[in-house]
Design a protein around this nucleic acid. Structure first.
Lengths: 133, 133
DNA sequence: CGTAGTCGATTACGTGTGTAAACGTTGGGA
DNA sequence: TCCCAACGTTTACACACGTAATCGACTACG
């Protein structure tokens, strides 16, 4: 996935995640850019976005690069690492580290569409193939 | 899964979850019982457990039943509902509601054991069978 | 019958989070 | 050159959370 990943000690919160999503979509971005991208949907003013950006910087989740008198922000952690980490966290916390029960519950909450099922089966086929390592 | 489920407006936190797990294992329990069950592992005193129980009561996640001079606590929400809900939350929040990408990330983080894979395969097979509804 | 221990309820307190305003600086247009 | 607008930084504040002590009531033992 990502070779050397900068570990984020502190966890990224819900609000901060919205900012990360914007930066994962396109980066580097200025604070104003980010505010334009996420502010509308969440009803945030520029001030709020600036706070979130600062906190992400101190959590070492994003980096700043000076451009003239302002900063451009870039993610330091990759989206895939974040998603993988959060998924693993959930599986560990709620399912004792075993993924099969998670899918059982997803099936019960009808969170598994036919498309999902087909796609997962395709993935499984791939996994089985490389099984011999 | 569970017919009429009492909705928990407020979310159950990490610490509170430990208490819920104890009650899901065995209930009803007194505060002291719960403290005996989870206090040791988490290093909590009785006072802390009592606070968590009160908060769970006000969140309507558990109910009290007076027994003599003390209360016995019982879960109001079922473990399966909680797990299903949290799983769905994750899929919605991080994967746009689609489970297949989640599966892909778990596979990448090597969070999937051979057993998991076999079990998921069996599960999917079952789902496909009842597909025609 | 008094008192110590126990129970639930109330209060406490530091930190994280969501949300933002205020402040000090500085570059760019008039 | 002067001032305003825009930047990043600092400060703010209410509420949630983790963790617990304190308090007033009551019960059971001595």
């Amino acid at each position: 996935m990502a070779g050397e990943l900068p570990e984020v000690g502190e966890r990224i919160t819900e609000a901060e995640l919205a900012v990360m999503e914007a930066l994962w979509l396109r980066s580097p971005l200025s604070a104003t850019d980010v505010a334009d991208a996420v502010g509308k949907a969440r009803g945030w003013g520029l001030a709020t976005v600036k706070t979130l950006l600062s906190r992400l910087v101190s959590k070492q989740a994003i980096a700043t690069e000076p451009q003239g008198r302002r900063f451009l922000y870039t993610p330091l952690i990759e989206r895939s690492d974040y998603l993988g980490g959060e998924s693993k966290r959930l599986v560990d916390r709620l399912f004792g580290g075993r993924a099969a029960p998670l899918f059982a519950y997803l099936a019960e909450t009808e969170a598994l569409s036919d498309t999902d099922i087909a796609e997962i089966e395709a993935l499984l086929k791939g996994l089985r193939q490389e099984e011999g390592k």
